[in-house]
Simulated scan of single mutants.
Amino acid sequence: MKVPRFLREADQGGAVVRTYDYDDESIIVVDLGQTSDIETDLVGKTAIVVIGDRQFEFELPPDARDISIKNGILTISE
C-alpha cells in the first residue's frame, strides 16, 4: 500500500511513519507522538485527523479498508 503524501511529509516533520507488508495485508503505522487530543474521522476516502486545534486531511490509499488511532498511533490497514 502506498503511503499518502501527507504522511510521507509528516515523517520529515518528526512523526515516525512505517509500513509493514504481510502475505495477506499491508499496514501503515504513524506515531504522532501524542497520546491525548487526537481524533480521526473518515468522509468517503478522505481521512481527517485533528490534533488539538490543528486539522489535517489526506486521501486514503485506494486499497485502504480501515483507519484507527490509539495512544497516538495512527494505523491504516488494507
Rank of each mutant, 00 (worst) to 15 (best):
I76W: 01
R65V: 13
R54Q: 15
D63Q: 14
V43Y: 07
F58G: 00
F58V: 04
L74N: 01
E59T: 08
T46D: 09
E39N: 14
E57R: 09
E39A: 15
I76M: 01
G44M: 04
R54Y: 11
L42Q: 08
L74R: 00
I48V: 14
V50H: 07
A47K: 00
D63G: 05
E59V: 09
K70Q: 14
D41V: 05
E57D: 08
G44P: 02
I48C: 04
I51P: 03
D53T: 12
L74P: 00
F56G: 05
E57N: 09
F56C: 06
Q55I: 12
G72Y: 05
I76N: 00
A47V: 03
R65D: 12
Q55W: 07
G52A: 11
E59A: 11
P61L: 02
N71E: 14
V49D: 03
E59C: 04
K70T: 11
E39Q: 15
V50D: 10
I73K: 07
I76E: 01
E59F: 06
T46R: 09
D66Y: 13
I51F: 07
G52E: 10
E78C: 10
L42R: 09
Q55V: 13
R54F: 11
P62F: 11
D66G: 07
I69P: 00
V43S: 11
F56H: 09
R54D: 15
T40Q: 10
V49C: 04
S77T: 13
I67M: 10
I51W: 06
P62Y: 10
A64K: 00
D41C: 06
G44N: 06
T46P: 02
V49G: 02
R54C: 11
I48M: 09
F58I: 02
D53Q: 13
P61D: 02
